[in-house]
């Protein structure tokens, strides 16, 4: 199961993060999680939202360049070594991770990891072989409920 992630280009200047977040808020769209990658010169804001196609429309209408990427979410035990166990599986299968981020889940004792893989379909299969199931968007949305 894969999720749609929205990415936005931001200049690395004070206040640049506010405008897109306000635009999404004004449209009544809640952000499930986000990550911000930054360099000295620019930043890339990555968002996972409930209603990604509406959010994409809102942002594009506001003049942002929006990129749509498939990412994979899995939940792990929220305890030391929880992430390492998943990484080990991926490592052994030679799956390349472009980047990842994590957040705590609605379910006690669980954390959610978001992965951007070079080949998401292959990664999902590798994980499933080890009984690690990728979450679908409903499961994430419930995380927000």
């Amino acid at each position: 199961m894969k999720l749609q992630q929205l990415s936005l280009f931001l200049e690395n200047r004070p206040g640049r993060l506010d405008a897109p977040l306000e635009a999404i808020a004004a449209a009544g769209i809640n952000i499930l999680t986000l990550s911000l990658a930054d360099t000295a010169q620019f930043g890339i804001l990555r968002l996972i939202v409930r209603d990604w196609d509406k959010a994409k429309q809102v942002l594009e209408n506001g003049g942002w360049v929006v990129n749509l990427t498939e990412v994979v979410a899995v939940d792990v035990e929220d305890k030391p070594g929880g992430l390492a166990a998943v990484l080990k599986v991926l490592d052994q299968a030679g799956v390349n991770i472009e980047y990842m981020y994590a957040f705590s889940s609605y379910r006690p004792g669980k954390a959610i990891l978001i992965f951007r893989f070079e080949d998401p379909d292959h990664a999902v299969k590798v994980l499933l072989d080890q009984n690690i199931r990728a979450l679908d968007s409903d499961e994430l949305i419930h995380a927000d409920a």
Partner: peptide, 18 residues
């Protein structure tokens, strides 16, 4: 200005464009 054609969610790719 960046364009949809060159924009990527990956920092590495954007640094390559630059």
């Amino acid at each position: 200005e960046i364009t949809p054609e060159v924009f990527s969610d990956e920092v590495r790719v954007m640094e390559q464009v630059r």
